[in-house]
Design a protein around this nucleic acid. Sequence first.
DNA 1: CGCTAAAGGTATAGCGCTAAACCTAGCATG
DNA 2: CATGCTAGGTTTAGCGCTATACCTTTAGCG
Lengths: 341, 341
Amino acid sequence: MRVTLKDIAAEAGVSPMTVSNVINGKRARVSQATIDRILRIVEQRGYVPSASARSLAARSSRIIGLLVPAAGEDSLTISPHTVEIIGVLERELRKHDYHLMLRGIERIDEIAEALRSWNLDGAVLLGFQDVEIDRLGPDTVGRVALVAMDSYSENPLALGVRSDDFTGARLAARHLLELGHRRIAFAGPAFFDTGVVRQRYEGFRRAFVEAGAPWEGAVVAAVETTHAAGRAFGHLLAAEHPEVTAVFTTADILAIGVMEGLVEAGLAVPGDVSVVGYDDLDIATFVTPKLTTVAQDIPAKAAVAVRLLLGQITREEHPDAAITLGANLIERGTTAGPKLE
Amino acid sequence: MRVTLKDIAAEAGVSPMTVSNVINGKRARVSQATIDRILRIVEQRGYVPSASARSLAARSSRIIGLLVPAAGEDSLTISPHTVEIIGVLERELRKHDYHLMLRGIERIDEIAEALRSWNLDGAVLLGFQDVEIDRLGPDTVGRVALVAMDSYSENPLALGVRSDDFTGARLAARHLLELGHRRIAFAGPAFFDTGVVRQRYEGFRRAFVEAGAPWEGAVVAAVETTHAAGRAFGHLLAAEHPEVTAVFTTADILAIGVMEGLVEAGLAVPGDVSVVGYDDLDIATFVTPKLTTVAQDIPAKAAVAVRLLLGQITREEHPDAAITLGANLIERGTTAGPKLE
DNA sequence: CGCTAAAGGTATAGCGCTAAACCTAGCATG
DNA sequence: CATGCTAGGTTTAGCGCTATACCTTTAGCG
């Protein structure tokens, strides 16, 4: 049989409530002698509190949900970028004695279900579109602390944490423009009207304005964030857009696909076409030449998410709203001046 | 206030127990009319059962722990290989209405704590050493279903699921030997005496025996499974082992590091030195030339883990013990015959 | 001396659910 | 007619914990 609070209490000769208080650190009204005695017995008997009983009685689970979109039969698409976030989230939460529950979300209303079923104290939304986050209402969310990674949604129920995508893209585009490129492609997933991609798109445009470069030089393409789609886009560029001398992509994996596609089509990187990625994942340095890319501080992003989450949970106040971290360009080997004709 | 079973019961004019039975699919002794009425009300009121109350009353949480070693201040080291596993685990478990709780383990006895605190129905051990798994006793584990990924531990409390590492390494080594290589390096983490690495090491040796090649030709080195360590090893090989014409590594990331190190030292891959990786991750095709590597069916591995887990949970029987899946060699561009002198 | 306040607890009443045992009406059966 | 069986439920008694309110004893103080 399980060792319970009652057992400890009986052995220590106090009421269960006192043991509960000691274990939960509410020691103001307990004598030091009693505290020591209880802790010794707890240790000895290997008592571990029942989390379910706690959640039930205290109406708080100390679980944070990690909610990730799951497309039907597919398993979760966890990008390398996401993995790093998960690792840091777990560590930070564990430090504060919270637990992480991973849950794939197929339909958006499963969010509410997940939150209520487990009495989650909070949740991190990872990889949702802004439109989906916009849809969250007070009825679904309740009094749960919510943080949305890489979101620009204005929904006050889910605080956004993101790096400065506008600036990141602007720096990348400026870099290409300064190198002398004028016909530049923008390749990213098809959500130009909202969120992260929108920001990067706008940053990209801004650089053109700032450089006084004609916007007609830009080729904007919707390309899925996969290696395969990037490769196909590389082929397409080579075949149908010979005037393009540089490509900005919204993800390293996409950039690497594009590189491969271009090379297969007989073009050199950066000799004929320059390529810029986004995220500065490890893989950026695995390709030859090494990928020029925009770096964001992913561990910091995750740490901020936890801070925001716990801020909402412990103080009842709703903290300062969305937080935006920096982004900067890492120049490596895939960018150079355009070929002189 | 939360909508509870009682509320539903009151509205439907039945006892809470009947509602409970209907919701849990134990409908044998309930009339169809009552079932329909209850389900309609549940739907209408948006009733979501409280998981904590359930766990407490039923002594079963429907949570599976995903336990991963966490080295102190570092965040979880989740390799790309691991990520894929996590995604599949989540999907398979969700299908069966189980949930996944991610937990970093710093000291081995935290496993017991995690299991008991949340009343876990089972757990997947990901990334532990065989020696650690060997140490798990019935007292720590209790009646919890345990599956250890990539383990060769004989501990009957934690069923191993792995691919055939012996054969994988044997195929890789045979490939190199058949190409004519005789001075071959084996590079892998320093756990030669146990588990996965042991199997691969033995498979590697076996290939030498089978080919009638002199074992003196082998150079066995302990190299951490990181890009940086691989790169350093590449340098070392070039400087101190010019006789070596091929390298077998226990991980793609390591192989990629070695490639980079060799190239930096002025050697060509595969012109001067052939390289073989392990896992066939996406990154294996990102490098130039593309990496020859040993592939394992990772989704299948995860699916088997879930099957084993649920088998233990639902039927009380302990299933058939460890399961080993296949492994096969993917020949790409990093292997060729040794240079003729 | 009477009163207050602090220290150090305890008692009560759930949290929301489920396992297990029990109940009852209605019908068939020998 | 006594009996058993079945369908369709209900009752009881917790699971292990915590929030809240309450109760003593002792010392301090004017």
